[in-house]
Simulated scan of single mutants.
Amino acid sequence: MTTYVLVPGMCHGAWCFEDLAASLRSVGHHVLAITLTGVAERSHLMSGAVNLDTHITDVLAAIENDTAAGDELVLVGHSYGGMVITGVADRIPDRVDSLVFLDAVVPHDGEACWDLVNDEERQWYVKVDDTGFGVPPMPFFDDRATAHPLATVLQPLRLQGDLNRFRRRVFVYARDWPGESPLQASYDRVRSDPQWISHELDGRHNLMRDTPDDLLRILLDAAR
Rank of each mutant, 00 (worst) to 15 (best):
E72A: 14
R209H: 12
G81I: 12
G132M: 04
Q155C: 01
L215Q: 01
L60A: 02
R165M: 11
S26T: 06
M138R: 13
V5P: 10
V105C: 13
L52Q: 08
V105D: 00
L6K: 01
L6R: 01
R165I: 10
C11R: 04
Q155L: 11
L150K: 01
D162Q: 14
M46I: 08
R189L: 12
A185F: 09
R169F: 10
L6A: 08
D213R: 08
S47D: 07
S186F: 10
L216A: 07
P194K: 09
D221L: 11
H44M: 08
R191I: 09
D193S: 05
W124A: 10
D143N: 06
P178H: 05
R224S: 13
S47I: 07
W124F: 05
M138Y: 06
V5W: 09
L215D: 01
A112K: 09
G77I: 06
C16A: 02
H78R: 00
L52P: 09
L215G: 02
G134K: 04
R122L: 03
P139W: 05
I197V: 14
I63E: 11
T3K: 05
Y4R: 12
G28S: 00
P194S: 12
D109Y: 09
D66F: 01
A33L: 06
D143K: 10
V128T: 15
G82A: 12
M46P: 03
V190T: 02
P8L: 10
A33C: 05
L116P: 04
Q123Y: 00
A61N: 12
H78K: 02
T211R: 14
L201E: 10
L36K: 00
F166H: 14
R175H: 03
S181G: 04
S98R: 09
P8V: 03
G81A: 14
L73E: 00
D142H: 14
L36M: 13
C113P: 02
D71V: 02
E180H: 05
D94M: 02
G9N: 06
G9F: 12
G179A: 15
G81T: 12
D19G: 09
V5L: 13
E72S: 14
G161D: 15
Y80K: 00
A33D: 11
F171P: 00
H29R: 07
A14E: 14
Y80M: 08
R95I: 07
W15R: 03
L219G: 08
E200S: 14
Y4L: 07
M10T: 11
C16L: 04
R189A: 12
Q160S: 13
G38H: 02
D119Y: 05
L45A: 15
W196V: 10
H29K: 01
V172E: 07
F141A: 15
V100H: 04
A61T: 15
I197A: 06
F171M: 14
